[in-house]
């Protein structure tokens, strides 16, 4: 069996560890090496799995790999993706795909021109409840969709996430894209108008917003709202949530993506916690990426999908400046 040879570029975003574990578990995949300009982030992993390590990601791209997984700081997604495409490597890129519309278009064009595939990492499409909700919508179980109220709340991430020159934005950019992608996917219509509010509210003295509320109108007439705030503090029993109330003319579908949990009250943890026991969405996403690349089929979540969602967040910043809705 031909193995898919994958290199991982940057572990700046912590999701890289989960993606590595998912890749490592697949017999048809060989993770050959890791590139990270900060060796301390990956030295344990490199040692434990006897991987090649590269300080400069270009050295990794020079090797005989088929694809890369990019989990760098947001601002480097475009540069690394375009460089990988030029060397003929398929790309799975962490969200948000980019921090400007132009750079994301460049990423998509570079991959197209070099005949490699670009996939945006939107693992929430691999929550079983989300998939079942989409099927129920398609079966017409709640009539025509009117609106979606979503939340993708999280904990304050700190680090480069709150340095605008590395992240490109705060909670509005970071947490609009997942559920906005789900909304796009379920509704199947394009966002035409965006109204957003965002501000640093929870933390003091930070340069990016940690609270966000973004509203969209789709061409089909459906409207939506999404809370993107990093509002979960350390005493909360879990990191955050992914929820949607999908409201139709004949009913409502409630999705709580991480409701499959046990309540744990342990002195070892120092507080009550919610222990998630549902399926590992990252593993299913990684499997789908690998299958698509190996079979030569189109990846399930495209660069365009990544652009559409990130572009809504970027329009949100425009709306914030104007204090009124903006057209896309």
């Amino acid at each position: 069996m031909k193995k898919l040879r994958i290199g991982m570029i940057s572990f700046a975003h912590g999701h890289a560890f989960s993606y590595f574990n998912s890749l490592h578990a697949l017999p048809e995949v060989e993770v050959t090496g890791i590139a990270d300009s900060v060796p301390s982030r990956v030295e344990n992993l490199v040692r434990a799995h006897q991987l090649s390590y590269y300080e400069d990601y270009r050295q990794l791209l020079d090797t005989d790999i088929d694809a890369v997984v990019i989990c760098s700081e947001n601002v480097y997604h475009a540069e690394i993706t375009i460089e990988a495409a030029r060397r003929g490597k398929h790309v799975l890129c962490e969200k948000p795909l980019g921090i400007t519309k132009e750079s994301m278009e460049d990423m998509i064009a570079a991959c197209r021109d070099n005949n490699v595939q670009l996939m945006t990492a939107f693992p929430c499409r691999y929550l079983a409840a989300v998939i079942q909700a989409k099927k129920a919508v398609e079966r017409g179980e709640i009539g025509d969709i009117i609106a979606i109220k979503g939340t993708n709340r999280g904990s304050f991430p700190g680090g480069w996430f709150v340095e605008p020159e590395l992240s490109g934005g705060g909670a509005l950019l970071d947490h609009t894209v997942h559920v906005m992608d789900l909304m796009n996917w379920i509704i199947g219509s394009a966002v035409k108008e965006v109204y957003a509010y965002a501000a640093p509210l929870f933390q003091e003295n930070i340069e990016v917003e940690d609270a966000g509320m973004i509203h969209v109108k789709f061409a089909s007439g459906v409207f939506g709202v999404l809370d993107t705030s990093w509002s979960r503090n350390g005493t909360f029993p879990t990191w955050g949530d992914v929820t949607m109330e999908i409201v139709g003319t004949k009913g409502v579908i409630s999705v709580d993506g991480f409701a499959q949990k046990n309540e744990l009250y342990s002195k070892v943890n120092g507080k009550g916690t919610w222990e998630f026991w549902g399926d590992n969405m990252d593993a299913y996403m990684i499997q789908d990426f690998v299958d698509a690349i190996l079979s030569g089929e189109p990846v399930p979540i495209s660069g365009e999908d990544g652009l559409h969602s990130a572009n809504v967040a970027l329009a949100g910043y425009q709306s914030l400046k104007q204090g009124q809705p903006v057209q896309l």
Binding site: L201, M213, H215
Partner: peptide, 30 residues
């Protein structure tokens, strides 16, 4: 800021309030 759809025996609204304090709230009614 308000979003609303009204049909026969259905009236659904999402409303976002920005407060003088800077706080924000989203309110749903169905």
């Amino acid at each position: 800021y308000g979003l609303n759809r009204r049909e026969e025996l259905l009236d659904y609204a999402l409303v976002t309030l920005q407060f003088e304090s800077g706080a924000v709230a989203n309110v749903e009614a169905n």
